[in-house]
């Protein structure tokens, strides 16, 4: 079985936030919830880079480890999903996740959080594939349609990659080779250095 992963290539991401918008639109996510976000490091300085981040679908997911009602499960594709019928909206997964992936719909004073919402790798939830129930709670199930997550599929610079981990690393390895990163002096771009002369 494939092991699904996201990879965001910081050299290619141009912070257009299209992945965020596409995700919101595809799954009709409520106001205030963002399954994916783009973070810019060193904004306006030399070495500014952006990364698009969502649920990383960890192999040993901390959210699943701390959930008091044990509502998380990992699919055969290695996608970490949760059951919203079981979720009680306690927010522990939000504390446990290093990436800030779990989102909660309501945020008013003394409000209880609603049920958690997070990136599903466009793989829906425990309900029947393509059922209206599934769509309402988790958004579209593109994986069941044989498609990859929309954020990655429509990324204009192909910075955001999604798919089987082995294939992703092959693609990324080729990019690195073509970019000409060197082992001679880590941190230096040798692009303009003429080799073999």
């Amino acid at each position: 079985m494939a092991r699904m992963k996201f990879y965001c290539d910081a050299e290619r991401c141009i912070e257009c936030n299209a992945c965020v918008t596409a995700c919101k639109n595809e799954h009709e996510i409520p106001w205030g919830v963002n399954r994916r976000r783009v973070v810019t490091i060193k904004d306006g300085q030399q070495g500014e880079r952006s990364l698009s981040v969502a649920c990383m679908h960890c192999s040993d997911a901390p959210c699943a480890a701390v959930c008091p009602v044990d509502c998380f499960y990992t699919t055969d594709d290695g996608v970490v999903l949760h059951d919203k019928d079981i979720c009680i909206g306690c927010g522990y997964c939000f504390y446990a996740c290093p990436f800030g992936a779990p989102q909660f719909p309501e945020n008013a004073a003394f409000s209880s959080r609603g049920k958690m919402d997070k990136c599903t790798f466009c793989a829906g939830g425990p309900e029947d594939d393509h059922s209206s129930d599934e769509y309402k709670k988790y958004g579209r199930n593109r994986l069941a349609e044989g498609k990859l997550p929309l954020c990655a599929e429509m990324c204009s610079t192909k910075a955001l990659l999604a798919g089987d981990a082995n294939m992703l690393s092959d693609i990324y390895r080729k990019r690195i080779i073509n970019r000409g990163a060197s082992v001679l002096n880590w941190g230096v771009n040798y692009d303009k250095v003429k080799l073999n002369t």
Partner: peptide, 28 residues
């Protein structure tokens, strides 16, 4: 470390929160 994000919510600029793992280990 905090970057910036167009998504304006608490902590949205933080890519990796190292305390999260410690909290998880403590609880579990």
């Amino acid at each position: 470390i905090e970057g910036i994000s167009q998504i304006k919510s608490v902590d949205s600029g933080i890519l990796i929160n190292p305390e999260a793992d410690r909290w998880t280990r403590f609880r579990v």
